[in-house]
Design a protein around this nucleic acid. Structure first.
Lengths: 222, 222
DNA sequence: CGCTTTATTGAGGGCGGTCAAAGAGCGTGG
DNA sequence: CCACGCTCTTTGACCGCCCTCAATAAAGCG
């Protein structure tokens, strides 16, 4: 079960995100909660009256079809905001991909604030939209290999210059994000590794060996 | 080439959309332009300082990969607003799917307005996001048949109760929207027709014969 | 160290893609 | 009005990428 922490836990955030950041100011009004791996943060069709920020761990938003087919909308890692992507009700559910700590704040604060905060909400929604549009291109027109390459590159870029990137999520989550099966993901990872493009030091840790080749595979799109 | 019309051409809009609609009030400040089939409304990476509303015809937003693979982000028909889906620059280009008339207004009016208009911009962005998320589910987890069924149902729903729905776009556009080839789209349309689910009276005109079966195919997702 | 979960690898099959040709729709001009 | 040519669509035959099913291997965890 999720445990409520004191709001002072905001100090979990990297320093760069604490100073002079209106988003951070907003979340100082929130409450910190812990979620176990696979625990639901919010459910599909639930009321969307809270917004969230990942402090530790990671979150996925998912949509499940009647027969069990699953699509992951996006992943959110430390520092990311999620939950404001919809109208009055969530159209995806959100779950922790592993044990996570999450800041929660009332969405009404954003929506009714006006001025800077409201523009911030719009900005965040717009970023979500841009990510969704990239996702559409990936799912509509990229091959399995390109999808996996795009995924690794995105994650690597996000972690900005870290030599070894770690994957917070399992292979099944990656597959459900990329519109593939777990076997195909595994095969493509092996293929990228044997092609000396990436190198896995552990199941969930890799380093980019040939960044240019990775980018070429990922970014055929202009 | 696009021709500028007088702003009074706002009367092209259906009556229901003219009275007491702040969006309409906004667009009264705009200019009407005509675009020929396949003519570009705006290009990828162009500055996004205008927003648009379709009066007649239809528009597609597209993204083309380096090797020519094409993905259509969405279609916009009479009454729809588009162009505000991005940050400072467009990430998709927009083209008329056939001869079209489009209202154009400065985006800065929306962005800097504050209050109701700004919230309107946010709402519109959020609707775009929801459509993009549905699109992600479709591309990631639906079969070719389900994709085509979803497409026809969406269009039919949008035209709300019209007995005969017409497709403003060609098969290639449908294929590029659904992440399929033109041949597969054609085959699935034939299949849906021989299954007595829809019926094409012309290449670009169909009626829904078995709405329940169509919905079952389209909406396996809850 | 044994048990469970997760990931990898292989063999084979099917859905959708590719290539090719025929057919339908449509504007133009005789 | 029909003939012609162009584009768009449909249909068929075949192929390949990715999925399915199955077995093995590795990792996590008590």
């Amino acid at each position: 079960m999720a445990l409520a922490y004191d709001y002072k836990d905001v100090h979990f955030l990297p320093t760069a995100q604490r100073n002079g950041d209106p988003v951070c100011a907003l979340f100082r009004m929130g409450v910190t909660m812990a979620f176990a791996k696979d625990e639901e943060v919010y459910g599909q069709d639930e009321e969307a009256d809270l917004i969230y920020r990942v402090l530790e761990g990671g979150v996925r938003t998912t949509r499940v079809m009647a027969d069990g087919r699953r699509q992951i909308g996006d992943f959110y890692l430390a520092g990311d905001i999620f939950g404001l992507e919809t109208g009055p009700r969530h159209r995806f559910s959100a779950e922790a991909v592993r044990d996570s700590v999450i800041l929660v704040v009332k969405a009404s604060i954003l929506r009714s604030a006006g001025g800077e905060l409201e523009r911030l909400g719009w900005e965040a929604t717009r970023r979500e939209l841009e990510r969704a549009q990239e996702h559409v291109l990936l799912l509509g027109r990229k091959t399995a290999c390109e999808r996996v390459a795009s995924f690794l590159k995105d994650l690597s870029d996000k972690c900005g210059g870290v030599p070894v990137v770690d994957l917070p999520m399992g292979r099944q989550d990656i597959a459900d994000y990329l519109g593939l099966t777990i076997e195909t993901v595994s095969r493509m990872l092996s293929q990228l590794q044997s092609g000396r493009i990436v190198s896995f030091c552990a199941t969930r840790q890799f380093r980019v060996v040939n960044a240019e080749a990775l980018a070429r595979l990922a970014d055929q799109a202009q």
